[in-house]
């Protein structure tokens, strides 16, 4: 018997690929909601909105200071307790058992990634020059208009490389989603491995699938950077030093 059974590994690929939609769904949905919440949190911090600013600091500190897998467990076991407390008081009847694992994962990963995105957006908004907002004011824009039309488009371009890294980390982090009972790439691989005692083969299959997904994402993000940053005079496009 070969040390690595490639035939077995190849045969299992289609089965493991069934986990890809779960991985992508969690990563993409969490990323999109993370952008929304992350931006709002970043603005609360930049404009030092009372209470919300302090809450944001606390939240970001907690998320960044605890392992994701611990957060997932706290969330998974905490939500039923929370519902048990809220249901009678708010007259609701939401059964924790009826919430699908995917919903758990989407919410938990959004909570996690929004904290990181808030910090990315905060620093990228601060990296746009103060003169840009002043110019927006000088042509009669409100703060909201200046943010939406001038500052955020620039800040997103500055943030894009970091957002790309974050998204790739998010994809890899979905391999922890078994903690909330989502059966994605890694979970499927483990199940098959357990059945056939082919651990190395299955982990190799999983790692190659993750790798390919991440490669594709990197390409997409670098295309996006080029497209969105067309107004920037980039270091690597300038004349040689």
């Amino acid at each position: 018997m070969a040390i690595i059974d490639f035939k077995f590994a190849l045969e299992q690929v289609p089965e493991v690929l069934k986990g890809v939609p779960w991985t992508l769904t969690i990563a993409i949905v969490a990323m999109i909601f993370g952008v929304l919440f992350g931006l709002l949190i970043a603005l609360c911090r930049i404009y030092k909105i009372p209470v919300l600013n302090q809450l944001s600091i606390l939240y970001i500190s907690f998320i960044r200071g605890t392992p994701l897998i611990v957060q997932l467990y706290v969330f998974f076991y905490g939500v039923p307790v929370l519902l048990g407390y809220l249901n009678p008081r708010l007259g609701l009847s939401i059964e924790a058992d009826n919430i699908s694992p995917l919903i758990y994962a989407l919410v938990a990963y959004t909570i996690n990634t929004a904290a990181y995105q808030a910090e990315i957006f905060r620093s990228s908004i601060n990296a746009t020059s103060a003169g840009q907002m002043e110019a927006a004011y000088s042509v009669g824009m409100t703060t909201a208009q200046g943010l939406y039309r001038i500052i955020l488009p620039q800040a997103i371009v500055i943030a894009l490389p970091n957002l790309g890294n974050l998204f790739i980390n998010l994809i890899k982090a979905t391999s922890l989603a078994f903690a909330v009972k989502v059966v994605e790439i890694l979970a499927i691989s483990k199940i098959i491995a357990n059945d056939g005692y082919r651990f190395l083969e299955m982990y190799l299959v999983a790692s190659i699938i993750y790798w390919v997904i991440c490669l594709v994402c990197e390409i997409i993000f670098s295309k996006l950077e080029k497209k969105m940053g067309r107004f920037e005079a980039r270091m690597d496009l300038k004349a040689p030093a």
């Binding site: 110019a135 042509v139 009669g140 001038i150």
Partner: peptide, 28 residues
């Protein structure tokens, strides 16, 4: 009023034409 700045402060993410149009579209 309108203002002309020492360091120009043109909107970096807008073309020359868009820079001039911006105030007209948004404020006016």
């Amino acid at each position: 009023t309108a203002m002309v700045f020492q360091h120009y402060n043109l909107f970096k993410n807008k073309t020359v034409l868009e820079n001039v149009m911006e105030g007209l579209l948004v404020a006016k």
